[in-house]
Computed example of a mutant assay.
Amino acid sequence: MLGKKSKSYILLMQISMQMSLLLAMAKSYFRATKAFSEGSPIGDALGPMVAGSFVRSIAQRDDVEASEIAKDTILQEVDFEDRTIYVVRAKGPGGTVGKPGTAIKKLVEEHGDSIKRIIMIDAGLKLSGDKTGSVAIGVGAAIGGIGVEKYYIEDSTTKKAIPIDAVICRQSLEDAITTMKRPITQSVADIVEKIKMGIRKRTPKGAKVIVAGIGNTIGIGV
Rank of each mutant, 00 (worst) to 15 (best):
I69V: 01
K99E: 05
G98Y: 03
L46E: 00
V87D: 12
S53A: 14
R61S: 12
I58T: 01
I58H: 08
A66D: 00
F54D: 02
P48W: 02
G95P: 13
A123D: 01
K91I: 08
A70N: 10
A123F: 04
E81Y: 04
V88Q: 12
G112A: 08
Q60H: 10
V78F: 01
V108A: 13
D79M: 15
K126P: 00
D79K: 09
D62N: 13
D122C: 04
G124M: 14
S67F: 05
P93F: 06
K71T: 13
L127Y: 02
V97P: 00
G129L: 09
V88S: 14
L127Q: 12
S128A: 11
E109S: 09
V50K: 05
G95E: 03
D122T: 03
S67H: 03
E110R: 14
V50F: 01
R56D: 04
V78K: 11
G98I: 13
L125W: 03
A123G: 13
D79Y: 09
V97N: 02
A70R: 09
G92D: 03
G47C: 11
D113A: 10
I85H: 07
A59S: 12
V87S: 09
L127G: 12
H111I: 04
G95C: 06
K71D: 14
T73M: 05
V108P: 06
G95H: 01
I115K: 06
E68L: 14
D79N: 09
I85N: 02
G94L: 15
G92S: 05
T73S: 04
R61C: 14
E81G: 00
K91Y: 04
H111P: 00
Q76P: 02
S114M: 07
I74T: 07
P100N: 08
A123Y: 04
E77T: 14
I69T: 02
E77M: 15
D63K: 03
A59P: 01
E77K: 15
D82P: 08
G94D: 07
L107Q: 14
V64A: 11
E68N: 07
I118K: 03
V87L: 08
R117L: 14
I118G: 05
G129W: 06
H111M: 11
D82R: 08
I69Y: 14
A59G: 02
T96D: 02
G129Q: 14
D72F: 11
L46V: 15
K99Y: 05
E109G: 10
I118D: 00
R83W: 00
L46Y: 06
G112F: 07
K126N: 10
K91A: 15
L125P: 01
V64Y: 01
